[in-house]
Design a protein around this nucleic acid. Structure first.
Lengths: 194, 194
DNA sequence: TCGACTTCTGACCGATCGGTCAGTATGCTG
DNA sequence: CAGCATACTGACCGATCGGTCAGAAGTCGA
């Protein structure tokens, strides 16, 4: 792995754990055993490092959205597969997702965060079944923010974490239930854990 | 209102909008038209200011929890009132709630955040019906984090916000559904918005 | 009028921040 | 070998950070 890649990885972990503003270039350099100057050789600025770290996640989500406008007419039957792919992508990029959710407010003017906001809007437009009401949009926000929070919490090693496969199943069920309550049989979620 | 109170209010808004690390004492002083030295006269440190700002919310939640261990035996019938009171408290202290959720990771070693973590654990113990399973705990986390995210977003004046009363109703319904799916009739949430 | 107390301020401190720059080591290419 | 690009470093810069401190200004009761 190139130095640049290890820096991106270290930045992803630092930013997710301690926040963008709570992380310094020096700390990230120390994490990978190089110098601050080396970081600024590979990336023009701290913000450019953030963008490089977030880009793969945003690209993956954008690709996911672009790939499925063709099934816009049959959202109900496509929903489970859609949400499944969505959760998988979020889990693959959990650090970036966690960064976006927790730093979104503080970094409103940063371009890469604005791009994330646009993608979230596109996701909302894709997942919402009917004409957007306050209720359905609020439930969607709760689902997305909640899932992102869970993924961020799973990066913390101060406590035990459940099996990723089990987590995946729970996230898919819950998100589906929140986004499209009309098409999810209630029994599927109420009687699962005994 | 005393200078101290206005400082607490300004700190609450700053921290919620830009994060604790993204806010400086100087900025908060400027917000209320005083000097940085004046802030540090009323509060020993920036961290003490954060604690003073968070305290009312944490006190309210702690009081709410302490008040209801007696209905531990009949959680099912008590649940709606419990969640309603809980959402009301969160909405009354939305800035502090937003701060806690978004800064929790970056400020793990700050005492007032640790106190918040303990309160969240107590809330989980109170709201969970059965023996805690991964599924029910995950759903609870999604609900709490999602609701907190919504409340933080409502502090942002860059876009329109729905009626607080409508929001309250939606939050109560959704949280109840996430925490205690077994006792919530699915029809209550699926057919509401048409 | 005289302290004593509260409130508040500007000057100042050391530390750290993001970022610049000149220079060095290495290795490929002609 | 010379020449050039890549990778990297330490010294340094101005700005800002949280926090200290001596003192000014106003209020109060004795």
């Amino acid at each position: 792995m190139t130095t640049r890649d290890t820096l991106v990885q270290a930045a992803l972990e630092r930013f997710a754990r301690f926040g963008y503003l709570g992380s310094s270039i020096q700390q990230i350099a120390d994490d990978v055993g190089t110098s601050k100057s080396s970081v600024l050789y590979h990336f023009d600025s701290k913000e450019a490092l953030l963008e490089a770290a977030m880009a793969p996640a945003l690209d993956a989500l954008a690709t996911l959205i672009d790939a499925l406008p063709q099934l816009r007419d049959d959202k109900v039957s496509a929903a489970p597969a859609l949400v499944t792919g969505f959760v998988d992508t979020l889990m693959q990029h959990s650090a970036a997702v966690s960064i976006f959710i927790s730093q979104r407010g503080a970094l409103q003017q940063v371009p890469v965060i604005q791009r994330g906001n646009e993608i979230v809007d596109a996701i909302a437009r894709t997942l919402v079944l009917e004409a957007p009401s306050t209720r359905v949009l609020t439930r969607l926000s709760i689902g997305l923010a909640g899932v992102a929070f869970i993924l961020g919490d799973a990066l913390d090693d101060s406590h035990e974490h459940p099996d990723p496969a089990e987590m995946r199943e729970i996230l898919i069920d819950t998100l589906l239930e929140l986004c499209m309550p009309a098409i999810v049989p209630a029994a599927a979620t109420t009687g699962r854990d005994a």
